[in-house]
């Protein structure tokens, strides 16, 4: 479904990605794990069109998407829930969810998706009229995921969904990610520093180090890998 091939990217003159390659098949949960500054966020930004790669190719459903603007990439079904959660702080929870469906006109299925989001996160329904900026960290992350789902994604990309959350909430967020994948069949790409959570919840994973994807495997394979255990699981 998604293929990233030998991509490099830079911020001005500073090279952030040297050689990133990965693929995501339909129906999978794939995670991209790596230390802070390894290039996870930049990889997602290249895919969603926020940054143009210097080199390399990104294809989605067989078609190159390099050079498309972010709004065009959103319109073909790739929804990026960015680092920092990407909420509109002075809009209500409900308005944020509606903005998530900005490009859609299918009223009935928008309402169905809204009900689905509320069933995943009942607290969002309770806080429907509250401004997003006043939510707790965990609620904001739920809203960010909910807002992403409202775009009816073929591929949902989540950037560090566990960041800044208490361990119990981290469990809950990853359970929900698996639930979305199972119930809706949504393909999901997660960038995550919390390697243990990511690997136990994903079908496959990539390890990124200093802008290079250095390893690939199923969640189980990587959980058993010597290097991964030492560097990312602290075992």
């Amino acid at each position: 479904m998604l293929k990233v091939d030998n991509v490099s990217a830079a911020y001005g003159k500073a090279l952030a990605l040297k050689e990133v390659s990965l693929r995501v098949e339909k129906g999978e949960i794939v995670s991209l794990i790596g230390a802070n500054g390894a290039g996870k966020t930049t990889t997602l930004r290249v895919i969603s069109g926020m940054i143009r790669p210097l080199k390399g190719e990104v294809t989605f459903e067989g078609r190159s998407i390099v050079g498309l603007e972010p709004y065009q990439i959103t319109s073909i079904g790739i929804i990026h829930v960015p680092e920092g959660r990407g909420l509109f702080p002075e809009m209500t929870v409900r308005e944020n969810l509606e903005m998530g469906a900005f490009l859609r006109t299918d009223k009935d299925s928008i309402n169905e998706d809204l009900e689905f989001v509320y069933s995943l996160f009942p607290v969002l329904k309770e806080r429907e009229k509250q401004l997003a900026g006043t939510l707790s960290g965990g609620e904001q992350q739920m809203l960010a995921i909910g807002k992403g789902l409202m775009g009816n994604p073929k591929l949902l990309m989540l950037d560090e969904p566990s960041l800044g959350l208490a361990p119990m909430l981290v469990d809950k967020i990853f359970e929900t990610i698996v639930q979305i994948n199972k119930e809706k069949g949504t393909t999901i790409l997660v960038a995550e520093q919390n390697a243990y959570m990511a690997l136990t919840s994903s079908h496959r994973a990539y390890v990124i180090e200093n802008g290079v994807t250095v390893m690939e495997g199923t969640g189980e394979e990587l959980l058993g890998n010597e290097h991964v255990r030492k560097a990312y699981l602290g075992i």
């Binding site: 929804i79 990026h80 960015p82 002075e90 809009m91 308005e95 903005m99 775009g151």
Partner: peptide, 25 residues
């Protein structure tokens, strides 16, 4: 209006606005 909301969204969080499909240009 939808356009009005898109303007407010862009003002509150420009990169998030792009990512929900708003043509910020």
């Amino acid at each position: 209006t939808k356009t009005g909301k898109a303007i407010r969204a862009t003002s509150q969080n420009p990169s998030a606005a792009m990512l929900v499909g708003i043509n910020t240009y």
